[in-house]
Amino acid sequence: MRTRLSILVIVLMLAVAACSSSSPTGAKTTRTVTLVTHDSFAVSKPVLAGFTKSTGWKVRVLKNGDAGAALNQVILTKDAPLGDVMFGVDNTFLTRALDQHVFATFRARGVSRIPSAFQLDPSHHATPIDFGDVCVNADRRWFSDHQVEIPKTLDQLTEPAYRDLLVVENPATSSTGLAFVAATVAHSNRGWLNYWDRLRANGVKIVDGWEAAYNGEFSGAAGSKGTRPLVVSYASSPPAEVYFADPKPTTAPTVSLDATCFRQVEFAGVLRGAAHPDGARALIDFMLSARFQRDLPLSMFVDPVMPNTPLPEVFNKFATIPSRPFTLTPTQIGRDRSRWISQWTAHVLR
């Protein structure tokens, strides 16, 4: 009897679950615009609701993999696009998106006010939305405990005082790692591999992704058992450490090193062949609006591209935007990306 009963219970559970599951399949509202993006995309609910309220467009968000994977899927499906808008192509992938013609031209409202440093696509297919800086972060406590000065420059990282202290991500599998390699290219030009030789001789540790580096190896992350006080992360990581701490500390436990940063700019574009191009354009306009731009720091931990957007307090207090980050043109990145990765792999890993 007990067997039958438990089988019945299981079957009922399955049935209930199956019935209740049909809701999210296809919202057949007439005006729904579909946003294709990567897994890190986030926006506050009221902000998105505000967009629906003012334009009548509902937003369906399709997430898929990291930035590289999401873009590659858009490229694969360009003949029958998955949605109307793509958000999350950064400057390291921009030329791939442009060369594959996945975006239609669109000049968003207010785009002329965006500083020229972010205007990396003069043909106006891709609209800059936010930026962030990949920087070396340091664990303040470790350096004060060990009475070592926190390094400032990339060159200092190769000095004996900082031996065995740095952990970085593999550029072949991590966009953070790729950005840091780009920083070293911008810093040492032709000699960038020599720089890596010196880093390697100084005991740099390489792991595969940001999670493993930051949560696993870095000593400054909350609750981490890591032992290395220097990590390649973001300029927004120190404010995040404060924001997500409970209770909130008065000083950030970590600091980002301004002279080690590489700037990433994220773009959005109207997908060519979109079913709802007008909705897509409205959504990109909205992404440049004050409301969305203000929401960026705390939802995605990136900085707004629109000048004079007020930043939240944790950012004002604990984040610094590097004044002169390393940059490379998207064309150069697009041309050399594969070569960098294979040379780096051969030189540093093997």
């Binding site: 897994d39 890190s40 940001w210 999670e211 997500f244 701490a245």
Partner: peptide, 17 residues
């Protein structure tokens, strides 16, 4: 699992928690 992955890909104590 995707949510766990996402929490882990952000810095900060509450995310790890």
């Amino acid at each position: 699992p995707v949510a766990i992955y996402r929490f882990l890909s952000r810095p900060g104590a509450t995310n790890v928690d």
